[in-house]
Design a protein around this nucleic acid. Structure first.
Ligand SMILES: [Mn+2]
Ligand SMILES: [Mn+2]
Ligand SMILES: [Mn+2]
Ligand SMILES: [Mn+2]
Lengths: 152, 152
DNA sequence: GCCAAAAGTTAGACAAGGCTAACAATCTGC
DNA sequence: GCAGATTGTTAGCCTTGTCTAACTTTTGGC
């Protein structure tokens, strides 16, 4: 129906878009939400590999605050999506793509965290909020956050 | 193991907590995520009622960028949760609780948006990012955002 | 080297949130 | 006041992400 309206009233529209700017914003947020878990996982996996030498499901479960079967299923999805490799009963490895994503996420996380602390937030709340906010910050916003965090 | 370690090293722990601060942060983010949709819906419904006199599912679908059946199912959940009331083939009303939540969400949204614009972001990107960030901002952070947005 | 504990997997349940297809009710313009 | 358009509902499918229960594999202390 909205589709039909669009086609009628706007037949030259380059993309068959879903309507107004609001709808686009919500669609963007939904898209971001779909990546949140993968982002948090690869970031954590990279950190575990760095700190402990390997990323074991049990540690992922502890840090994420979920049960082991939840981790197992999630890791299967990450493997399916090409972000990690794994073998039965073994610890987890990042693919090239996973490593790249982890690096990017860590970078974003870092900036958001430093920004919040610079704003005046206590480190604990900052860490908490950064963990959620990081997934919803555009490149532009990130640049502004970085500039603010680094200002003298 | 971390669990066991914790129990060993911290047997007087008041709450049987799930481990470290990290796990708590992730659990908090997951809790926030569970409320996102309800928050966006009640905020939008309040706005539609204010602007058009009523909130019709078709308009909710258009603004949210989802299909009508998705809206129907979501509205059923909101009704179950006491945030709205609805009758078949009629438009949607907020309960007292829904109205309170909508007001709070609108307030938060407003502050986050003004904050981002004040930071130097273009209004369109600001609207986009605010739509995601608003759900992950603690009271403390919101206060800092408000102070920054209102500074002279 | 055995065997118990720890870690990991598998199976299966369940809710949320998205979709399409098909049908039902309401509204509107004549 | 009816027919066609619009709006709304229902049914059913799918994926994600969580859990518990039960099983298997690995590991480590003796
Ligand atoms: Mn995060
Ligand atoms: Mn993070
Ligand atoms: Mn929002
Ligand atoms: Mn909002």
């Amino acid at each position: 129906m909205t589709n039909v309206d669009l086609q009628k009233t706007n037949a030259v529209e380059p993309e068959a878009r879903a309507g107004d700017a609001r709808a686009e914003a919500f669609q963007g947020v939904r898209a971001a939400r779909r990546n949140e878990l993968a982002e948090d996982y690869v970031e954590l996996i990279a950190e575990l590999i760095h700190n402990q030498g390997e990323a074991r499901p049990v540690d992922i479960a502890t840090k994420m605050g979920v049960t082991a079967p939840t981790v197992a299923k999630t890791l299967d999805r990450l493997a399916r999506d090409g972000l990690i490799t794994r073998a039965k009963y073994r610890s987890v490895f990042l693919t090239e793509e996973g490593r790249a994503l982890a690096k990017e996420c860590r970078h974003r996380h870092e900036i958001v965290l430093r920004f919040l602390i610079r704003l005046g937030l206590d480190p604990e709340t900052a860490e908490h909020d950064a963990e959620g906010i990081e997934h919803h910050v555009s490149e532009r916003t990130l640049a502004l956050f970085a500039a603010f965090a680094n200002r003298s």
